[in-house]
Design a protein around this nucleic acid. Sequence first.
DNA 1: GATGAATGAGAGTTCATTCAT
DNA 2: GATGAATGAACTCTCATTCAT
Lengths: 202, 202, 202, 202
Amino acid sequence: MSKRNGDKKEIILEAAKIVFAESGYHGASISKIAKRAGIGDGTVYLYFKNKEDILITLFHDTIHNKFAEQVEQAIRYYDDARLALLELVRNHFDFFGRDIHLSRVIQIESRQSEQNVREGMKPGIQKYFRIIESVVERGQEQGHFRKDVSSRNSRKMIFGTLDEMVTSWVLSTKEYPLIQMVEPAYKLFIQGLLECGKSDGI
Amino acid sequence: MSKRNGDKKEIILEAAKIVFAESGYHGASISKIAKRAGIGDGTVYLYFKNKEDILITLFHDTIHNKFAEQVEQAIRYYDDARLALLELVRNHFDFFGRDIHLSRVIQIESRQSEQNVREGMKPGIQKYFRIIESVVERGQEQGHFRKDVSSRNSRKMIFGTLDEMVTSWVLSTKEYPLIQMVEPAYKLFIQGLLECGKSDGI
Amino acid sequence: MSKRNGDKKEIILEAAKIVFAESGYHGASISKIAKRAGIGDGTVYLYFKNKEDILITLFHDTIHNKFAEQVEQAIRYYDDARLALLELVRNHFDFFGRDIHLSRVIQIESRQSEQNVREGMKPGIQKYFRIIESVVERGQEQGHFRKDVSSRNSRKMIFGTLDEMVTSWVLSTKEYPLIQMVEPAYKLFIQGLLECGKSDGI
Amino acid sequence: MSKRNGDKKEIILEAAKIVFAESGYHGASISKIAKRAGIGDGTVYLYFKNKEDILITLFHDTIHNKFAEQVEQAIRYYDDARLALLELVRNHFDFFGRDIHLSRVIQIESRQSEQNVREGMKPGIQKYFRIIESVVERGQEQGHFRKDVSSRNSRKMIFGTLDEMVTSWVLSTKEYPLIQMVEPAYKLFIQGLLECGKSDGI
DNA sequence: GATGAATGAGAGTTCATTCAT
DNA sequence: GATGAATGAACTCTCATTCAT
């Protein structure tokens, strides 16, 4: 049955997520993944071409199909780009804050892979990049956001900051909830480092 | 002689840099590195404990001893934190823009490593983190930078943005000089996304 | 029904013939054979013990039951051993010239098998060997064929030559019809290499 | 030292010969070969690309470099093609009669290999083919051998017969020395099956 | 100090075979 | 009878590391 099939693929992905998070991408052998999934080594190859394929699928399912999709939906009904950006930031931290294993895989392990794999992860990230950039562009059109910095570069700041904050949290002891980063991140995006109303950027 | 010794160690590090950049960390075998360095495989083990050790040393030498050191020197004579930050940004892009192989290793390959290695790279990054944070704190004391965002979080934005911009450049076709990212990065840091004097962050 | 049963067995053998010919004995997986036969992998095991069994059956059916049988019938009504030999040669090339897939399996792939399999192919070949030898012996009794070479050795020449000619054809681009080898083979068998009436064998 | 290198390669080939002969090409694992050679598994890969490479080298060394070479030398000083042919036959059986393991590999196991391998064995066999054909052609020019059968076809008879006789001996209990096949083979080549001076080929 | 041949643990992967459905 | 998902033994091959020279 297709039900079954989906189930087993899901089971393998779930097991792989845990193993990748705990042993790292290169320390994760097919054998370990299979054992954790409670299946035979060979069975993995019925559902995935190889270890790369597992990581790519995990990444794509997560980032392209779930995360980027969810963000897109979440900001759909905000007209003001500033509010849309706030919602985007909230979603980012909310998503990664929910599943520490997943976050570890996405933030750390997925970057430990060959050219090959990174190629397979591109569509997912780029979908997210385009979402961020479109928010920035909307803000520029609305006259809220500066136009002397390209939306591409603004996106690099936004994504770079969010990414660094999540990575930092993943590698930390996680004493604070990730969601509490929404406020500082948003403030920095909007007004930068400047003391409000008091100072200028020289 | 320690002179000689230093020489050979340097030669190996230089070779490793190229091989890591071209083949990736996991695709780089000791054999390849030794061949490129023009020495025997076994000789590598006279200077390094293992492959991990090479990467850690390469990273530490570069980031802790050269890069962070150089940044520290460069901002030493700026009193105004805003100008110090500008100089820091300039140094960051200047440093990584000069050596594409090195940049690739630092931005991409060094993240493809085990817990172990990342542990060894910590001192270097943290030295740089502290430099950034001290600039921010100085700005706060001077009344230029906001105090409602911690220096730690501001640092995450600054480092995250710079890092993302370098990574983006490394993975691109490098048609633009990295140094031209100084201006957009600095602007975003200082005033964020807002249109100057026209808009507010809601 | 035995009819049905026979049908499916036949279908599997036919599929196996093609797959063996195209992928080689060792490159032919049960899975490939089943797919080609349009049945499930497991079904193969209802009709055959294993892959070896398929090859042995294919060989035996072909060589013992069809080919040797047909040759035996064909030479039955020739009294003169020389004419019987000619007919045997004609049959040999005719049979293998008709089915290139089969020829490939018999000439090439069936020799890529373990002791085991070769054991199972013996009865078929030996039946053919006995046919050849009996023709030679008849020729000796009739005073046509030499008696200073044993029928066993003469058979080795005859079979070795025919076999080499078929193999050669199978591995070639097959621009010539195999049947045209009847004449040179027969001539060489009968009078050997000597120029007729002119020369002696020293 | 190059001496050493040659030694170890030779040791592996010798071990492989025995293992191929005893377990068959497909039953021979690299592990078995290494164990028999008294070396580590990995060492095999310092000298050979893979199992195929071992068989190809074994075959080429034996057939192209030793056997065909030796035959070429042996017949060099015979002017009369009939005597050259006799010497060729003698050499063939002498060579294969000396080393039963080698014969088994050449006659049986080397035919159990993929397209790939057979391609690598071609140069060796074809060198031998050309030697046989050149003897036949010389005989034709001398007026001793028939011209109504091409040298190519005559070669197929000669090689096919010799090959079949060796195979037959290899698969037998080897109660007779292979060298005693020289006489019947030569007789059949020269005068075929006909009773001398008494009969005709119809 | 320098070498590089040798090692063997351990990875990925295939596929004949089984068995619950 | 028919299926094909699941299995796991067994294989090939790589490469960090050692050590006799």
